[in-house]
Structures are given as C-alpha cells and as structure tokens.
Design a protein around this nucleic acid. Sequence first.
DNA 1: ATTCTGACGTGGG
DNA 2: CCCCACGCCAGAA
Length: 114
Amino acid sequence: MATHVTLDKSDFFERVYKVVRDIPYGRVTTYGAIAKSIGAPGAARTVGYAMNASHNLPDVPAHRVVNRDGMLTGKHHFPGRDTMQRLLAQEGVMVQEDCVVNFKALFWQPDPLV
DNA sequence: ATTCTGACGTGGG
DNA sequence: CCCCACGCCAGAA
C-alpha cells in the first residue's frame, strides 16, 4: 500500500544505467537524451552525477556519454589523462579537440522508457 | 537543517 | 553572438 510515492532514490540511477548499458558499441549519446528517455527531462545534470557513481559498474560504458555538443566533458573523471578518448577510439569513435568527430551521425537516440 | 557544487540543457537579455 | 539564471537530483561540508 504505497500511501505515497515510494520512489527509491537509487531508482533514478538505475534507470540511467539501464539506458547507458544499451548504448551500442561505437555509438554515443548525451546526458540530456538519457534524462529525457527516463522521463526526467531537465535532469541531465543528475545523469552526469549518476555516471560519476557508476565507476564501479563495469557494465556501464560511461565513455559513450557526452554532452549535447558531443564534447567529452567528463574526460577528467576518468583515470589517466585521455582515457575517455582512448576508450572511444578503441571503438572507432574519433575524437578531436575533446569533441566527437561526426557526432551527429554517431549519436544514438535512446528509446523512451516504457 | 542549510548551502554549495556539479560528467547538463534551455531560455531570456 | 555571448552571458546569466534557473531547474534538476544527490552528496559533502
């Protein structure tokens, strides 16, 4: 009997991870697109926060998440100097000046969560 | 409890 | 075009 909304705080993060895990190899998406797909448009910032907490989860390819301009804004949160870029390059995603080359074509639109 | 700060995005001036 | 303010949610001081 959920008297009031029993929304687990971790639920938000979990939803984010679920979407991120779905990002295909060699593709990228944005914080905003993820936020929108989990029904929380405008919470893009929190998505980034979730990514920060995802460091322990090997299943979550955080390097495939960039900002709306295709910039690797989170690169500084990876170990090493250009780890994020390296991980992307490994998948054939080229990065130049902290920006995903051909971002528009590589962008992957998450399915709206049902 | 209050305040501030983010791996963001949008809108107004 | 650039700059500023606000919303969003969570965690640290």
